[in-house]
């Protein structure tokens, strides 16, 4: 999986709460093979709707960070929501809360998701609206964010998640190093619940 260490990039404010995975990647695109790319899928229907979507605002061109509101990525388990963001060039989303499955999926593709207080997210978005195209820096090692005005904000992240992102660890390779433990557990499990064995 892709590593995440440190990123400096323009940031995109997305003001709406509850940006669900159906908005991030509408259902009719979900069967597209991964290799065909998902950049155009991101916010597809909102971009086509009247008024468009801020992701297409040229003042925020080249944005690599999203600053959102609460419950970003709630809804379905579709990993395409993450693929769309990553393929469109985003490597970090900051919000006050995330959909749990989206949160789990994001790390598999080197997309760093950071939880900050809603008021802090709001202040960051206000700053980004005031100075469109302003850059922010996200440093996973130091667990800090540098806001457009230079203020340094620290953030929390689960240690396992941080390590996996920093090192770009592949879960399957890691898990296979525990193969013996899994095998032993599995044998014991089958003894405990024999009714799960299919004949």
């Amino acid at each position: 999986m892709d590593k995440f260490t440190k990123l400096t990039a323009p940031a995109l404010p997305v003001d709406q709460p509850n940006v669900d995975t159906d908005q991030l990647a509408p259902a009719r695109f979900l069967r597209r093979p991964r290799g065909d790319g998902y950049a155009d899928v991101l916010f597809h229907d909102l971009r086509k709707a009247e008024g468009g979507h801020i992701v297409d605002d040229p003042r925020f061109a080249g944005a690599g960070i999203v600053v959102a509101d609460r419950n970003f990525g709630g809804g379905s388990s579709r990993e395409q929501a993450v693929w769309s963001l990553v393929d469109a060039g985003f490597r970090c989303v900051i919000a006050s809360s995330f959909g749990d499955i989206f949160y789990a999926n994001s790390a598999k593709h080197g997309l760093l998701t950071i939880r900050l207080d809603n008021a802090v997210c709001k202040a960051l978005r206000d700053a980004l609206h005031a100075t469109p195209g302003a850059e922010m820096t996200v440093d996973l090692d130091a667990q800090t964010i540098v806001a457009p005005d230079g203020e340094v904000i620290s953030f929390e992240i689960e240690p396992s998640r941080r390590k996996r992102l920093l090192q770009g660890l592949d879960d399957i390779d890691l898990t296979l190093t525990h193969d013996a433990a899994i095998g032993a557990f599995e044998a014991e499990y089958s003894r405990r619940k024999p009714w799960l064995e299919l004949n």
């Binding site: 388990s77 579709r78 499955i101 999926n105 598999k108 689960e158 399957i172 898990t175």
Partner: peptide, 22 residues
């Protein structure tokens, strides 16, 4: 638990899931 495609692949390959206890 609902899981994403990468986690599904992981479960297929290992019959296990890395997950922090909610």
């Amino acid at each position: 638990f609902g899981i994403g495609a990468s986690e599904v692949m992981h479960v297929l390959a290992t019959q296990t899931l890395w997950i922090k206890k909610p």
